[in-house]
Design a protein around this nucleic acid. Sequence first.
DNA 1: TGGTGATCATCA
DNA 2: TGATGATCACCA
Length: 220
Amino acid sequence: MMPQNLAALLQKAQSIAGLTFGELADELNIPVPPNLKRDKGWGGMLLETALGATAGSKAEQDFAHLGVELKSLPINEQGFPLETTFVSLAPLTQNSGVQWENSHVRHKLSCVLWIPVEGSRHIALRDRHIGAPILWQPSPEQESQLKRDWEELMEYITLGRLNEITARIGEVMQLRPKGANSKAITKGIGKNGEVVETLPLGFYLRKEFTAGILREFLGN
DNA sequence: TGGTGATCATCA
DNA sequence: TGATGATCACCA
């Protein structure tokens, strides 16, 4: 099932474009939940299964042998993203020496297969259509935007300014909580360089950024 | 706990 | 009403 090369992956992705979640799920004998309240990652998992990615948690690209990360992107009727896009957990400790060039964010975003998906809640989950795939690599401009934000955000982390971090920081990428709930805990660096308990944070792409990706591929 | 996949839902 | 902060499920 795992595609052996990029062409096969793209072909598979193109072959499911136009289907609804319900049609695809039925083919794969996967039950469709009534909504996403308790199954927030269901759509992404469905696409992973359909495209032959190995399900489960592994800290790497979905198609590591192809160097490709798979991401579903819920959009509204206007083709605009409905949600920000999670990229990766932020390293809150042991991050000395981490540079943009060897960061998880850069690696994850070096090549992404985006699959737009109808996401409006008034459309029943099983009736939502799967869009045409977009194989994307950041342009030099996009990468420099990401790098700038990453460096600014990482500065808060490494300088022990965790308490000052807000989702408003960052032009195209932000830091937000990423965990089971507000009681989730991890280690971070405090004001005086000491280890402190803090909320796990993740990097998220702002909607405007992913909207730009859609725009460049769908031709404005 | 820290990853994967994300969306929910409250409040400014 | 949209974005921020919170949350859901599953796995190793």
